[in-house]
Design a protein around this nucleic acid. Structure first.
Lengths: 179, 179
DNA sequence: GATCCCTGCGACATATTGCCGCACCCATTG
DNA sequence: CAATGGGTGCGGCAATATGTCGCAGGGATC
């Protein structure tokens, strides 16, 4: 990092504990961190001063982190954006990347991983998992995809999936533990 | 659809059965399908005649589908590419999108889903009423696929799917042949 | 014949669904 | 404004499904 100019970084997450811990960790690594707890709170900050880096939670109270990805990318397409979420799914990952995110990590992620993700460029060096997706994982991905197709409407998704709404609620409430 | 010009579509997958079934299904939906069983085989075809659409398997013998995504995108950035895989992971999904893929689906995916993933471009009436498969159905298809991959070995399949053998047995017993 | 890995199935504790109901929100509308 | 309709979150059961263990074979392989 350069000595005078610490790169600006916008951190948006509604979990206060996570926010303070990560803020500290990122500052230690040389970033000038600005934190916000919602998209609504972050937006004016971003507009007033478009950051060079951003770390966004996907699922927050209020607007989804996805809309902020788009805004940030519009404001400055050079901004490196890392999406972070405990409810990771392929569907939202694809959306986030299409909207301009640089990387997408699932949530038990530490500061080093996040910083590494900023520098990560597309490369074909990906290795595969030896195992096919588990049924659980497949189910989760499918649910997420249909959910997004239905504008995050739980009732409609349950209907179209021919699944009880209560059951869907419960499944969504549970965190995906595997990837 | 226009009468003369059927949009060209390149299908690359190393599973012969899957390939023929999907080829037929896509042709029925108005695409001029060219099939290949590997990246190596597909590359010259793509170079000679860059397709408008492409459906690629990620995990194949030889080179990964990812390198083909890149090539196709270089050849014609307007090509709509759908990545398909039974080994879905967020990391590869992110890579695929960054390399230029349009969508990324996990493998029990039918032709309607694939076509829908290409996006609505034809100004002709687009009806995407085709509701997504239920979770049950997805699960069944996935299990069948993995079962075949493991030579119909129930124990091995259960292991790789991280599912109890007894549970797999019961699931299989419940659906003799039905859909 | 001993060993290893598979299969089918009974039994039973535990976990997950299906299906109520209820209390809210919010947007639309008569 | 009150009413209507749809969405969300959640408690509480009864009905099912799953995890777990055990046991009796069936083939291979050595």
């Amino acid at each position: 990092m350069s000595q005078n100019e610490r790169p600006s970084l916008l951190l948006v997450d509604d979990d206060a504990t996570f926010r303070t811990v990560l803020t500290r960790a990122l500052e230690k690594r040389g970033f000038a961190v600005t934190a916000a707890n919602s998209v609504e709170q972050a937006l004016p900050l971003a507009i007033a001063n478009p950051p060079e880096y951003a770390v966004l939670d996907l699922k927050m109270d209020g607007a989804s982190g996805l809309v902020l990805v788009q805004k940030l990318h519009e404001l400055d397409s050079a901004t490196r954006i890392v999406m972070l979420t405990g409810y990771a799914s392929i569907a939202t990952a694809v959306e986030a990347i299409k909207l301009g995110a640089t990387q997408y990590l699932s949530k038990p992620a530490n500061a080093d991983e996040i910083v590494a993700a900023f520098g990560h460029n597309a490369s074909t060096d990906v290795r595969f998992e030896a195992h096919p997706a588990t049924v659980e994982r497949l189910e989760w991905e499918h649910i997420q995809r249909v959910l997004r197709e239905n504008g995050d409407n739980i009732s409609a998704t349950a209907r179209v999936l021919n699944m009880h709404r209560r059951t869907l609620q419960r499944k969504l409430a549970k965190r995906p533990i595997g990837l």
